[in-house]
């Protein structure tokens, strides 16, 4: 599903002493089945932006278009349900939303709300549990007995079970250990490929942006200040630093090598790209 933001503004608690700008004139387009990363410092408007994708927030002005659904200030809540179903949201620390007695029922909760029959919901739940790598023997257990990493997988399965076409992930790997992070990112990439999902990822991990994203949106002070491929976003290291952002590790390392007289056609973003660009600048093994 393609997504378009057209001059979207959002104001928190308008006309009160707590009034705060959430989004300011944000416009962009995300192609269907692409992987988009949203980056920016804390409080820059990333979470506000993604909550517009499934109508949890409605623009104060402007239009959000998801496939053929148009979301504006005037959209009524009745019409939001199909949007909720088609755009799955994985919030930060999603394990905090688990509540049901068994893992299976918690995962089936979304499909049941969206009008699937009990049987359909259970079969969707089993499929989703399988997709996130939860072993079958956990399905009848209480979600509160599981380890942190397993609970997070249950919560993600609970979103996938409603068969969304767009998957929004708000810092999904926060708090996991390195292996947990790597496995989870690989899992999202696989899900995207297998189920033809459009993925939107909010992250502070620039290495994940370099490894997975087709394009990135940079937020600062409620504004969208840059949009482009990761290569375009990181092309100007000075600008990146000025935005309090970091370079991917490999790009940062390559920067150092440039000062040592190495030359790169374009700034390498991953260890692999860097090694490839070092061919011809380093002696071959066994020589």
């Amino acid at each position: 599903m393609a997504i378009t933001f057209d001059h979207v503004n959002y104001m928190y608690q308008p006309n009160s002493p707590f009034e705060a700008v959430g989004l300011s004139d944000v416009s962009f387009t995300v192609p269907s089945e692409s992987f988009t990363a949203i980056i920016g410092h804390t409080g820059s408007g990333k979470s506000t932006l993604v909550q517009h994708l499934n109508g949890l927030l409605k623009p104060t002005s402007g239009t959000v278009t998801v496939d053929d659904f148009q979301l504006t200030a005037k959209t009524t809540n009745k019409h939001l349900k199909s949007l909720h179903q088609h755009v799955g949201m994985v919030f930060q620390f999603p394990e905090n939303q688990l509540f049901d007695q068994t893992v299976e029922r918690d995962i089936a909760f979304g499909p049941l709300n969206f009008g699937f029959t009990n049987e359909e919901a259970m079969s969707l739940a089993h499929q989703a549990a399988h997709d996130v790598g939860l072993p079958d023997e956990l399905l009848k257990r209480s979600p509160f007995e599981l380890s942190g990493g397993q609970m997070r997988r249950v919560a993600i399965a609970g979103v996938l079970a409603s068969q969304p076409r767009v998957l929004v992930l708000d810092e999904p790997t926060a708090g996991l250990d390195p292996r947990g992070r790597a496995e989870m990112m690989a899992m999202f990439a696989k899900l995207k490929a297998d189920q033809h999902l459009t993925v939107i990822l909010v992250t502070h991990q620039m290495d994940d942006v370099a490894d997975y994203a087709d394009q990135a949106l940079v937020m600062a002070h409620s504004n969208l200040i840059k949009a482009g491929t990761p290569a375009e976003i990181f092309a100007d290291p000075e600008w990146v630093k000025a935005q309090q952002l970091a370079l991917p590790t490999a790009a940062n390392f390559a920067q150092h090598l440039v000062t040592r007289g190495f030359e790169f056609d374009s700034l390498p973003l991953t260890a692999e790209q860097l090694a490839i660009q070092l061919r011809g600048q380093l002696p071959k093994e066994g020589r």
């Binding site: 909550q51 809540n77 930060q92 409603s162």
Partner: peptide, 19 residues
């Protein structure tokens, strides 16, 4: 804050709180 986040998460899973 936490209540707001959980409500959002459940609304995204199809719960209608004021309906």
């Amino acid at each position: 804050d936490e209540a707001q986040t959980i409500m959002n998460a459940q609304r995204a899973r199809g719960v209608e709180f004021n309906n």
